[in-house]
Design a protein around this nucleic acid. Structure first.
Lengths: 231, 231
DNA sequence: CGCCGAGTTGACCATGTTCAAGGTGGGTGG
DNA sequence: CCACCCACCTTGAACATGGTCAACTCGGCG
């Protein structure tokens, strides 16, 4: 169901007890190098809230399996999705004392929770862990920046095409995109309406750029053609 | 001309030579606590390029005076501004080896450049500096996230109102916004056209929300009314 | 004075939103 | 096992908003 496989397998035990500094690799800046300090394994089922805007920010999380969405709710009922987090991602960084965003399980998912104070204290001693933390933050930064760029794009076609290509990269097979989220989620992420997302996808299907075998699955027929839609 | 005043005064000497660990304050997470390791003072005049997308990322910068824009150029000529950096801000963080964005002087400005390798090496020994770096990264992250949120907003009015209120906070007087940038810059930052920005501002003036004493100056007549435009 | 770049304004048009019906499919209970 | 149901998705038509193109204004500077 979930598009990606976890770094470490699901475990039902509620707590890992490990002071493992983390693996010794430093050079390859892959996601796999993510945080491996002591943490608590937690499960969240679909649509469950992980934390809410305004709460005290006492933890951050690493995604083991499933997909998480970070979002903001506007007073008029609109919802804006800031990011989707996939296995390997760390999220929940805050500068201030409390959450600026809400996080919810976009699918059933497994997370590891780390106490902020604990890890930060540890990081004070452990240069390597400290560097990890820094890397995760910068990675989040890069992701937030490309999201801005995506939202700034003018047309719906450009946005949807970018989105599909992004997710194709996360997928196991290069041409199959398994969407873990609903059309509404996609719309709120791209700053469009659900109708426009739907129309854009069917239009792409008519133009033989993609196929839609199921509502949560997209087959990319021509990656090049899709890339040409993005300026 | 520039809206904000620098932390330390402009100096014409080209290089500071100081191993100053930085000031001892830790608690107040204000911008003023920014990076204070050895760096090189550099001046850039209006519209000068600071670094370009694709270059090797060997430094980051702290803004002393003036305003910097980070942006991306699309193949079809469009420009997308990711952020404006004001005095106190640190920019130029990268995870990868090279720049993902271009930085340009939006006004004449003075920066301090830090060699990445140098500071990161220093940070390895100096826990305090390391924490500083981390804080700056998280601050950039928060800023990038609110920019996403801004771009996701539906209406032009919402975007322009948000923008004005943001800059009012940076200004010395609460009701006067001194814009350091052109309409085109604003448009590219908000994902609008220059015409729409212009029209929206004059519309707000007609509705007595703001006054436009000069093209680079806005007086806010009713902060509350402006805030009401933002959901 | 006249030029030039930046900003404003207007008319028209393209794109996406809104509102309102239909579809579709996966899961549940009879 | 089938039928129904509900949430999710698709489609269509009318409409609103912002983009485009083009003319015009303003202010600073040689």
């Amino acid at each position: 169901m979930a598009a990606q496989l976890a770094i470490s397998p699901d475990r039902s035990s509620m707590t890992t007890q490990a002071g493992i500094p983390w693996r010794g690799t430093d050079a390859p800046a892959t996601k796999a190098e993510a945080l491996c300090a002591p943490g608590t394994v937690e499960h969240f089922s679909h649509d469950r809230e992980i934390f809410a805007e305004g709460e005290a920010a006492e933890t951050f999380f690493r995604v083991v399996s499933g997909v998480v969405r970070s979002c903001k709710f506007l007073s008029d009922g609109r919802r804006q999705i800031e990011a989707f987090h996939v296995p390997g991602d760390v999220f929940g960084f805050e500068l201030a004392a409390d959450r600026m965003l809400t996080a919810e399980a976009a699918s059933d998912c497994t997370l590891v929770a780390y106490r902020r104070r604990g890890v930060e204290a540890l990081a004070r001693k452990d240069e390597a862990l400290s560097h990890q933390l820094y890397s995760c933050a910068i990675r989040s930064l890069a992701q937030a920046q490309s999201h801005s760029l995506l939202l700034g794009r003018r047309g719906a076609v450009e946005k949807v095409a970018s989105f599909l290509l992004d997710w194709a990269d996360h997928s196991s097979r290069a041409d199959i995109v398994n969407l873990a989220m609903t059309r509404q989620d996609i719309a709120d992420y791209l700053g469009l309406t659900i109708e426009t997302v739907s129309r854009t996808l069917t239009q792409m299907e008519r133009e033989r750029l993609i196929e839609l075998p199921g509502t949560r699955q997209v087959r990319i027929r021509s990656r090049e053609a899709l890339e040409d839609l993005i300026p």
